[in-house]
Amino acid sequence: MTLATGIGSMPGDDDRDYAEAVRVTLGELPHLAFVPELPGRGAIANMTGRALAVVDGLGVDLQPAGWRLTDASGVDHRRARSLLAQDLDQVEEQAQGYAGAFKAQVAGPWTLAATVEKPRGDRVLADHGARRELAQALAEGLRGHVADLRRRLPGARRLVVQVDEPMLPMVLAGAVPTASGFGRHRTVHPPEASAALEEVLGAIADAGAEPWVHSCAPGVPWGLVAGAGARGLSVDHSVLGAGDLDALAQALDGGLVVALGVVPSTDPASVPTDAVLIERVLRWLDMLGLDPAVVGERLVVTPSCGMAGASPEWSRQALSLSRDVAGHL
């Protein structure tokens, strides 16, 4: 059976919106629900703040320029951790009796390195030792995070942790701006990029969850990601190039999951029918030379990217449409 899920972010800016987002995901995605993220609540709830709430052993604080490593956790770091625990309480309460698979999301080591600052300014990406230390702290934090999710969701038949890496192509291309904006950080070479991902993905797998990697940016080296230990690749159909087809075909042939983002993630001018989206998926599978009946649960249908910019009505409809497309496939 082909499954459906969401990427992670949902619209909303307060606790009531979060409770509603949990209700929507559980109601629309009975086989692969996810822990919603509401970045509209501010820096402590955005992708970076959420991941730093998971990181173990490093102090961070929120500065005017963004998150920065510090000697001890600041008040905003403590607030981010408190909000994550509060949100997971909401998920636990509403997911009583849930028996499907469940997914959580966290920013990956390279996206964090490109968005978090060193104590004296500029990105962690500029310091080889600092970026290695940040990846190790994320890996250690994820071991505890997975254990917490297991405790809260005892009926979940399968636990997935999706590592979000929207900045990975820019990191590999040497395209991340320096703090001044006048320069670019040096290119990170593939072996080092793979090693950091391998550490984080390995920690997820060691803790008993299934590691996926998501990016809706073009130019992601999916072969490198799969080689680092990802068991699922979450992609935006609209940005895939001809060079991505071989890597994704090999992933599906090798037993990995591919989550294909085909449903618009923001309110479309014209709502696509499930028939149009099904045809889009079937054409893509045909290009890969794969039969949907053979692929089965290794193919997952999703929105194209996160839905923080969507209306509440469309976010619900997009998840429902994803589920319908998966069901027909």
Rank of each mutant, 00 (worst) to 15 (best):
M1W: 00
L3Q: 02
T5K: 02
I7E: 01
M10C: 00
D13G: 15
D13V: 11
D15G: 12
Y18P: 08
A19Q: 15
R23E: 00
L26M: 09
L29R: 01
L29N: 03
P30M: 04
P30Y: 02
H31W: 00
G40T: 09
G40K: 09
N46C: 14
M47S: 13
T48K: 15
T48G: 14
A51S: 14
L52M: 09
A53G: 13
V55S: 13
G59W: 02
V60F: 03
L62H: 06
P64H: 03
R68T: 04
L69N: 15
A72L: 13
G74M: 08
V75W: 01
R79I: 10
R81V: 13
L84T: 08
A85T: 15
D87Q: 15
D89R: 08
V91I: 09
Q96R: 15
Y98N: 05
A101Y: 01
P109Y: 02
W110R: 13
T111V: 04
T111Y: 01
A114M: 13
T115A: 11
E117P: 09
R120T: 07
D122Q: 09
V124E: 09
H128S: 15
G129E: 05
G129T: 04
A130Y: 01
R131E: 07
L134M: 09
L134Q: 11
L134F: 03
A137L: 10
A139L: 13
E140Y: 15
R143C: 10
G144T: 04
D148W: 00
R151D: 14
R152E: 04
G155W: 03
R157I: 07
Q162M: 08
E165P: 02
L168T: 09
L168I: 04
M170Q: 15
A173H: 10
A179L: 07
S180T: 15
S180K: 07
F182E: 12
V188C: 12
H189T: 02
E192S: 05
V200I: 12
L201Y: 15
I204S: 03
I204K: 03
V213S: 10
C216H: 01
C216T: 03
G223F: 03
L224C: 13
V225W: 10
A230F: 04
D236Y: 01
L240A: 11
L248Q: 05
A249R: 14
A249G: 08
A251M: 08
G254V: 06
L260I: 06
V262P: 03
V263L: 02
V263A: 13
S265P: 07
P268E: 04
P268L: 11
P272I: 11
A275L: 10
L277D: 06
R283K: 14
R283C: 06
L285H: 01
M287S: 11
P292Q: 10
A293Y: 06
L299M: 14
V301L: 01
S304G: 15
C305N: 08
G309S: 11
E313T: 15
W314M: 14
S315H: 01
R316S: 14
Q317G: 05
A318E: 05
S322M: 01
R323P: 00
R323D: 00
L329G: 05
